[in-house]
Simulated scan of single mutants.
Amino acid sequence: MQTIRNIRLQSQHLVNQKITDIKELVQYMGAIQAQEYTMAKWAIGSRLGSATDKTIEEAFNEGKILRTHVMRPTWHFVANEDIRWMVELSSKRIISACISLGKQWEIPEKQYLKAINLIEKLLEGNNHLTKEEIKKEFEQRNIPSDIPEINRYLMRAEAEGLICSGAVKNKKQTYALIDERAPATNTLTKEEALARLASRYFLSHSPASMNDFIWWSGLLISEAKQAVKLIEKDLIFEKFEGSELIIHRSVDYQPVLDDSIHFLPSYDEYLISYKNRTNVLDLEHYSKAFNTYGIFYPVLAHNGRIVGNWKKSANKKQLSVDTSLFIEIPDIKEILYEQAHKKYHSFLDKK
C-alpha cells in the first residue's frame, strides 16, 4: 500500500514539486475537480510552491484556467487551451443528459435552443454575468427560468461549447463566451483527444487502474480502453498486491519519501479521481471522507494515508486549522503539522 501512496504523492505533485506555473499545473493534471471554488483553488495551491489564493484567482480571472462541466460531468478547472477538445469529448453525453432532464422538467428542445441563443447574445462583448443576472434577463423576457431550468440551460450551453467561466464578480461566479476566453486551437481528432486525456491522467495519477480511468474520465468503457491502447507504449502494467495498476513511464518517483502531512481540500484529486480508494483510505472510514450523496470532505493525509479531517477555524482574528484524527498515529512529528499549517497560511497569504 505504501508504495502506491508514495508514487501517487509524487505523480499528483503533492511532494517533490517541480512545476511552478498555475496553468501548467492544471494542464499537467488534465483537469482538477472544482465543485467548490475556494477548495479547488487550494487543490492547485497545495501542489505549487509559491501560488496563493490571490494569484490563482488572478489566473482564473484572466482566463488562463477556466471552470466548466466536463467528463463525468461535474465542475472542473481546465487550462484554456484544453477546454475545447475536453468539452467535445464530453458533449454528447452531457447534451443527452440535458435532453433527458429537460423532458423531466418539461423543457422542449425549441425552448432549449431559444435559451441558448439568448445566453450567447447576453454574454457577447466580454459581458460576464452571474447566474442570477442571466435569470433576471430571462424573467424580463418571460422565458421560464426557475433554478432547475436555468441550470439546464447553462449546462447545455457549456456542452455545446459556447460558454464557460467568466471572471469573479463581487465574489460570485460568472459565465462568459468560450470564444472570448480561450484561444483558438487546432481541432483534435477523437483518437488524438482520447490519447491526450489518457496520457494526462496516467502521468498525474499513477498508479491507477483501468476502472479508475473510466470513472475519472466519464468515457464509455470501449472509449477508455481505446484511449489506453493508443498510448500503450508509454505505460507500464504492474501488479500491486494482486491488482493490476498502470504507471506512466514518464513518472519519475523516489521509492522512499520523507514523512509528510497534507491538508487536502474537499473533492481533491488524490481521493476523488479513483474508483477504488482503499489504497489510501480504509474502507471502514469512507464515511469520514465522503457520504453516499457524493459530498467529499477536507481530509488529512499522513504519508499518503488519509487518517483524519481538518477545517479552517471559525476564529476570525487569527487563522488556524482544527484537525481530528479517525486513525490514531501516535508517532506523528509535531513539525509535520507545523509545515502543513505554514503551507496553508502561505497560500492564504496570512502571516
Results as ranks from 00 to 15, higher is better:
Q2A: 10
I7Q: 02
Q12S: 13
H13Q: 15
L14H: 10
I19V: 13
T20R: 12
E24H: 11
L25G: 09
Y28S: 07
I32N: 04
E36D: 15
S46N: 14
S50G: 02
T52Y: 06
D53N: 12
F60A: 02
R67N: 08
H69G: 01
H76R: 09
F77K: 07
N80S: 10
M86L: 14
L89P: 02
I99R: 11
I99S: 10
K103E: 14
K110R: 13
K110H: 11
A115K: 03
N126A: 07
K131M: 14
I134S: 06
R141A: 14
I143P: 01
P144M: 09
I147F: 11
I147K: 14
Y153T: 04
Y153E: 11
R156C: 10
L162I: 15
I163P: 01
S165I: 06
K171H: 11
Q173G: 01
Y175M: 14
Y175C: 06
A176H: 01
E180S: 07
A184G: 05
T189D: 08
E191V: 04
A195H: 03
A195I: 09
R196C: 01
S199T: 14
Y201M: 08
F202Y: 13
A208W: 04
N211A: 02
D212H: 03
D212P: 03
F213N: 03
L220F: 12
S222G: 04
A224K: 01
K225E: 15
A227E: 09
K229M: 10
K229W: 02
L235E: 03
F237D: 02
E238V: 13
K239F: 10
K239H: 11
F240S: 08
F240R: 10
E241F: 10
I247G: 00
H248S: 12
S250L: 11
Q254K: 15
D258M: 03
S260G: 05
S260M: 09
E269R: 10
E269Q: 13
Y270N: 03
L271F: 02
L271Y: 03
S273I: 07
S273H: 09
S273Q: 12
V280I: 15
H285P: 00
Y286C: 04
N291K: 09
N291A: 05
G294T: 08
G294M: 07
V299C: 05
N303F: 02
K311W: 09
E328A: 11
E328F: 05
P330Y: 06
D331P: 00
I332H: 07
K333E: 13
Y337L: 10
A340L: 08
K342I: 03
K343T: 10
K343V: 06
D349V: 04
